[in-house]
């Protein structure tokens, strides 16, 4: 695979063209993240179970490059799959996942995302070789992190 094909794996292209989890409710608590360099934008919400303990859904809206949009879509898909398997994320679990994601993406290709943990989102591993694109891939995950921090009152 060429570097470019590693970056734009079919999963990523599919998610950018047919994104999952798009659609916010009016008045929902959201985090809006922007990449000022290229204008990528993601506004994201975490939806919680009745007890407010676990994330059942990630919803978002946005515009921008295929990496930023696919990454948001893949995060939403991962949330949905985890919930369907009865393993909806607790805040600390999601936080750990975000940290792991960031570490891999900043690793310049030395750490790959674990497919067991990240599912299709592991396809984003290829981004880590493209330093200029890491920010694009992080956008949705940073929004989720921001919401967790705000919820925890920090």
């Amino acid at each position: 695979m060429s570097g470019l094909e590693q970056l734009y794996q079919q999963i990523i292209l599919d998610h950018s063209k047919h994104p999952h989890g798009v659609g916010l409710e009016p008045g929902e608590v959201t985090s809006h993240q922007r990449n000022p360099v290229c204008g990528d934008e993601v506004t994201l919400a975490l939806r919680w179970d009745a007890a407010g303990e676990r994330v059942t859904e990630v919803a978002w809206e946005g515009s921008g490059c295929s990496i930023s949009q696919a990454s948001a879509s893949l995060l939403a898909t991962l949330a949905e799959e985890s919930a369907a398997e009865g393993e909806a994320w607790r805040p600390e679990e999601l936080r750990a996942l975000i940290d792991e994601f960031r570490e891999a993406l900043r690793s310049r290709g030395s750490i790959a995302l674990d497919e067991e943990r990240f599912g299709d989102a592991a396809a984003l591993s290829g981004v880590s070789r493209f330093v200029a694109r890491v920010k694009c891939a992080m956008l949705a995950w940073v929004a989720a992190e921001d919401l967790l921090s705000r919820r925890a009152g920090v």
Partner: peptide, 22 residues
């Protein structure tokens, strides 16, 4: 149908330095 950032990546792949953004 292609965001500028993605378009620029295709050029970079073949050694062409071009600017993307606003």
């Amino acid at each position: 149908g292609v965001h500028a950032h993605d378009a620029g990546q295709v050029l970079d792949e073949v050694g062409i330095a071009a600017r993307v953004g606003h």
